[in-house]
Design a protein around this nucleic acid. Sequence first.
RNA 1: GCCGCGUUCGUCUAGGGGUUUAGGACGCCGCCCUUUCACGGCGGUAACACGGGUUCAAAUCCCGUACGCGGUACCA
Length: 490
Amino acid sequence: MRFAPSPTGLLHIGGLRTALYNYLVARQSGGAFVLRIEDTDRSRFVPEAEAYIRESLQWVGIEPDESPEDPAEHGPYRQSERSARYSEIASRLVSAGHAYLAFDTADEIAALRESGDTPGSVRYDSSTRMRMRNSLSLPPEEVQRLVAADSPHVVRLKVPDDREVVVDDIVRGQISFAADQLDDQILVKSDGYPTYHLANVVDDHDMQISHVIRGEEWLPSTPKHVLLYEMLDWSVPAMAHLPLILSPTGGKLSKRSADKHGIPVFVLDYRDSGFEPEAVLNYLALLGWHPDSDRERFSLDELVRAFSLRRVGSAGVQFDIEKLTWFNEQVLRELSSQRLAEKLAPHIEAAGWTCDRDEMETIVELLRDRISLARDVTSYPEFFRDPEDYDEKAVRKRWKDDSGDLLLNLLERLVAGESWDAPQLESAFESFLAENDIGKGRIMPVMRIALSGRASGPDLFPTLAVLGRETTARRFRSAADQLGAEDASS
RNA sequence: GCCGCGUUCGUCUAGGGGUUUAGGACGCCGCCCUUUCACGGCGGUAACACGGGUUCAAAUCCCGUACGCGGUACCA
């Protein structure tokens, strides 16, 4: 199994799903998961991309068994380092009459394409190749002269015109293509680098890849690959073309459409947004695949056991960030306090806050069921700093003329208790209510406003307990002072 | 245009001739729990693209149409 991304940009979420499925099949069959870098397009090469791919896989925990950094017997794992092998195969194809040299210029090819009545109706293929300048149409002496003169040329696949090519796909079954509908695919570009089609077939064979698992966008070129395997007398690996991941409105999940829907596209953006790798993997696994039960929560190991390419669907799937978020909530709830605290820490730090370890234990438990993403911890600043302002609506609704006094009286009572813990605070609070004959609804929202500036939040007494005597006193006084006897109607 | 793939609740999907009043999950709505907001529990909303055929029987098989997606590069 191999994951063979092209380092022309950052690894995106669709690429990660492809990697995941490859990984799952590799693990469950005891095979190797190979990372191969397909860097044959020198004009679009992005130097940082390879490191990004590696870091992304590392983050989610599906690391390759063989890769440029971890080579095994089938290296090198960068196509740019395998040129000699591609040239060798290209020559072999040419001498066997399965490929030919083409000397046409870009203008000549453009002219060919425009010769049809509708755009795209004329291709460089079995029906037009004899009209072009190539080693099939030109006299041999002319071809020799051009080669000797270092005339720029490409190598094209000589696609037969009289047969069907059948692709056996695990996801879709048998698909047949009429060969005369295929173009004479360029195998080697004029800069000497192979195209994807040649390099991919050669490498998959050389690296003994048993399963080619990739996106559906490759389906139309698969018959050309099958032809190459046949011409080289190599066996065709098992093929599986995965349904494409679409945007929530149906189109392609491009950077643009994703941004519009608030969906991160690049893998590490998920990390930076506070998504858990387990959740991302779990969601991605289910995006196109369905287990043979109604179960939805899977760890990576469980996925390895349950996954099957046969249960991968064939229709495009729309990305749903809300469902991913739900998976993320599930993951957070299953974490130990300590692990959860570790997850939240970077986001607290990023907000410029600090928090000591003991307090963190409690805070984490108060927040666990209230956050969807690790970074949501920043929606609860009350644990880290005094309120900066008071929510107007909450104050209007809950703060009465006597609220300030009530708060100060209550504070006096709470502070008088010998210990400052949640049960103690609560019982002091209860007796205060009884003595003053007021209901919870009268004072609790007021306390919340004083603590956080808002009328809702986590359990009140544990919150008071973590905040401590001093902070509580300061916030109560400050609220009484600032909001004072402010009239609800003013 | 041509080639290929696809089409079950808004979304991810189960089901692949009778087991189906079409099941699950997310979302949404309601109720319960509750000091608030969440969590949780319970309940509800909502789908077989359309038209022909085959068959005693079709969401399920076949054909067509529509629509969507992909490909049609010296990109991958």
